[in-house]
Simulated assay, not measured.
Amino acid sequence: MTDQSDHSWQRVPIEAQSVDAPLSRSAVFLVVSIADDDAAYQNVRDVLSGLSDLVKTVGFRDLNAHLSCNTGIGAAVWSRLTGSATMPAELRPFRPIAGSVHTAVSTPGDLLFHIRAERSDFCFEFERQLLGLLGDAVTVVDEVVGFRYFDSRDLLGFVDGTANPTGSEMAGSTQVGQEDAAFAGGSYVVVQKYLHDLDTWGSLPVPAQEGVIGRTKLENIELADAEHGQKSHKTLATITDENGVEHDILRDNMPFGRPGHGEFGTYFIGYSGRLWVIERMLERMFIGDPEGSYDRILDFSTAATGVTFFAPTRPFLDALAD
């Protein structure tokens, strides 16, 4: 059952960032920290307020490249950067989750730039100019270049993002509504970099892989939920509240890798109007449901990072330099 009970999103300003942009062919996930001085913070404000113009400057060369950049701000720098002690209601640092076998780690990060385009050169050029403008005001904490892999598959060979909301459900799932009116139209964003052990995964027979994921590998057909015992990744990542209402998030995950370095992974990025939905999903994956029955995909995919941000509306960013 999809969440249709809260229609507050229908009054959300239309100037939200490009959260609902279709999955692109290329992406850059850039996490940075801000230097601890007032000049650095002012420089960051100036750059963030001009991001819309920078997208136009780079993107005009080919409008069909559909260049976009979503920006998220972390809890630790929110007040100092925005000049306001009032924060989005659920914004907090990423909470590490220690299961019986695997841990969702918490790692540093003050700002997230989620850069997307149909051409990798546009992502590259935008990032180059962005970092040039930010200069010494920031330090790069993590930089991942993602790509679309065949028919939107991850490097484990399965289609990713099948359960994403679409159409009229998109805003209700991804945007804060009037329950937090000062930040309506914004989105909570959680990012994690997962590194895959493809050799061990590849040694599993396909039916066993399908049991872990909860879908068929070739056709992407959803398998029935297990009534008892080990639940699949698909089941554990489905969040239903106490009223039986299912809450979706938007995943814009991308594969990444460097075969020469033996590095293969998936960059998870989830957008939601309710941070607790993503947090509960990760708790079910790492702790298990019931406890100890964790998501078996974690035996092959290790979470190397974990950071939480809030992506405010575009007018909010534009006004930061004022």
Score class of each variant (00 low, 15 high):
1 M>Y: 07
3 D>G: 06
4 Q>K: 15
8 S>W: 02
8 S>G: 08
10 Q>G: 00
10 Q>E: 12
12 V>E: 03
14 I>S: 10
16 A>W: 07
18 S>M: 06
19 V>Q: 01
21 A>R: 09
21 A>E: 03
26 S>W: 15
29 F>E: 05
29 F>S: 06
31 V>D: 08
36 D>C: 06
36 D>M: 11
42 Q>Y: 10
50 G>A: 12
53 D>F: 04
55 V>Y: 01
60 F>L: 05
74 G>D: 10
77 V>K: 09
78 W>Q: 03
80 R>A: 05
86 T>K: 14
90 E>A: 15
97 I>C: 04
106 S>W: 09
106 S>D: 10
113 F>Y: 07
116 R>A: 01
116 R>V: 02
122 F>L: 09
123 C>I: 12
123 C>T: 14
124 F>V: 01
127 E>D: 04
131 L>Q: 13
140 V>I: 15
146 G>K: 06
147 F>R: 14
148 R>P: 11
150 F>P: 05
153 R>I: 00
160 D>P: 07
160 D>E: 12
171 A>P: 00
180 D>W: 08
181 A>M: 07
182 A>E: 14
187 S>M: 07
187 S>K: 08
195 L>W: 10
200 T>D: 13
200 T>V: 11
200 T>W: 04
201 W>V: 11
203 S>R: 15
211 G>A: 14
212 V>Y: 06
216 T>Q: 02
220 N>Q: 11
227 E>C: 11
229 G>A: 07
230 Q>D: 03
232 S>E: 02
232 S>Y: 04
233 H>D: 04
233 H>W: 01
240 T>F: 11
252 D>H: 09
253 N>Y: 11
266 T>Y: 13
266 T>E: 09
280 R>Y: 09
283 E>D: 13
289 D>M: 04
289 D>W: 03
298 L>I: 04
301 S>N: 00
305 T>S: 10
